[in-house]
Design a binder for these strands. Structure first.
Lengths: 287, 287
DNA sequence: ATCTTCCTGTGATTTTTTTTCACAGCTTAT
DNA sequence: ATAAGCTGTGAAAAAAAATCACAGGAAGAT
């Protein structure tokens, strides 16, 4: 699956590209020119292309060679930098948090400033991705998720509570419709939202039209703009309800899904992780 | 000088980080767990830090390990991508051009659109850096420079012509001062500009005050704003003179420095390079 | 408790890769 | 013509990496 060139020859190649000379490159690396020659050859064999032109008077990068050299230079620089960090920096790195985009936008981000005041020494790096997560692949410390998928058993799990959802619309839209002939706003990342709601309650909503959005972020924006009624998980609508931008005329219902925080089951105790987790638990409004 | 971790163990480490298991990582790479164990150990020895916690039930990345793994993942992905390009893409890559920032801003960039129309298939990537250049280190194809430094002899040189410079100010400023009690605008990247001018001509400029800027870009901006009189190389002021934003009341003087285009002396004939070089020669106003 | 399973670490050995050495060939400069 | 300065390459040496085989520790099953 992965198709990575042999790594060891890269250093020789990099040096050769830099000095446009195998001999000089070898000299800089305390090698013989033969070693550099063979390293370059190994890469050329791998690529099936010449990376250098060999002229009698010296070597010159080909177009491809120059392209590759540029990337190799960048890569080596990044490794050098990362290495430097690991070797010297005994301090802690950023806390990487993964969170669904809508939850991040409508709930986490507005509160992050507050957490920053609470724990100013913790640098948080938020990456918004949804669905099943592989903490290792995303190299995240922590993920906030709806527990609607199976995650590797090895992760630490902190249960936050069951999700509560409610149909929401703008106060004026409710005034206007009173539950009749409503425009149902759907969200593609949660296509069963309305079905779920209907199976949980016996409220009657007379629907007239339907409209679809890619994320809660959009459908809830639309509902607060008076375009119809959307289903929203509590954390995503709480602020707007408090502010009077949305109302939940049918109240909230608790669903079968829990919200969880996933983290690495490392024996290393990271106080930042504990602190952030507890803060989330406190903040997230759950049933 | 360079401090790069051993490269070969990176693949094993990456896999181990991904699967949080030496055995599984080895399995994926068609190796034995011992090989992975030793690869990780080699990196740990290099860093002088543990990258994994070893618990009886498995291994867990340490904080540093996770940090390093993130970078290694990025690096490998970049190499994979670059490798893919080199292996499949027989097309030509972008033309990388290096140019002094002020020349780029005030002369090249406004004309680049025109070149794009002339040769739409040539993608130009402009990087603005000044002074002595190492085309290899910057992995540029071509550099436009004032020949006031020694470059490696191995480069191709195209002479464009001698630089011409002139004191310039806004028409209204000239109207107001008529050469008396002027505010001299200096540029730190060419500190001898005024001395050079004075040694070339016998015009008398009565200076009252002096003001310093980091780049021609700023000092010329200031002069066209009527803040004083600056020295400007012809290409940098030509457009503003044509537009009536600047005047050169003392005319231009030819300096001892030539402008040159440096490129790789590769036996590979790159038509884009030739075309661009000729276009530059045509466009650059020189004495 | 005991057994089994599932990990990892490591010494000794084998295999593979990398480097060197020594020489050849080529082109430009003297 | 000779010398100097490149690179390529076969054979040998050195170094690095991988394997094998075993050991030890902890969790889970019996």
């Amino acid at each position: 699956m992965k198709n990575i060139p042999p790594l060891s020859p890269l250093i020789s190649f990099h040096s050769a590209a830099k000095y446009q000379s195998f001999t000089e490159a070898a000299h800089q690396l305390n090698l013989t020119h033969g070693a550099v020659s063979r390293a370059v050859k190994q890469l050329e064999d791998y690529f099936g292309t010449k990376l250098f032109h060999r002229e009698s008077r010296g070597v010159y990068l080909t177009e491809k060679g120059r392209y590759f050299a540029k990337h190799v230079a960048r890569v080596l620089k990044e490794l050098e930098h990362a290495s430097e960090q690991v070797r010297t920096n005994s301090e802690q790195f950023k806390l990487y948090v993964s969170c669904e985009p809508s939850l991040a936008m409508r709930w986490l981000m507005p509160r992050l400033e507050e957490f920053k005041e609470l724990a100013p020494h913790i640098d948080i790096h938020l990456s918004t991705s949804g669905g099943p997560i592989d903490l290792c692949a995303e190299s995240a410390h922590l993920a906030i998720r709806r527990a609607d998928f199976a995650w590797p058993k090895k992760y630490n799990v902190t249960l936050i509570g069951n999700e509560r959802i409610a149909p929401v619309c703008s106060p004026s839209y409710w005034e206007k419709t009173r539950g009749n002939d409503m425009n149902l706003l759907h969200t593609r990342t949660r296509p069963t939202a309305w079905e779920d709601w209907k199976s949980l309650t016996s409220f009657k909503i007379s629907e007239l039209t339907n409209q679809f959005f890619d994320h809660f972020y959009f459908s809830l924006q639309a509902s607060s703009a008076g375009m119809g009624i959307a289903i929203g998980p509590e954390p995503l609508v709480k602020d707007d309800i408090d502010r009077g931008l949305l109302v939940a005329p049918f109240g909230f219902q608790t669903t079968e899904f829990e919200y969880v925080i996933l983290s690495h089951a490392s024996p290393e105790v990271d106080h930042r992780l504990i602190k952030f987790t507890e803060w989330i638990k406190e903040q997230l409004p759950m049933g």
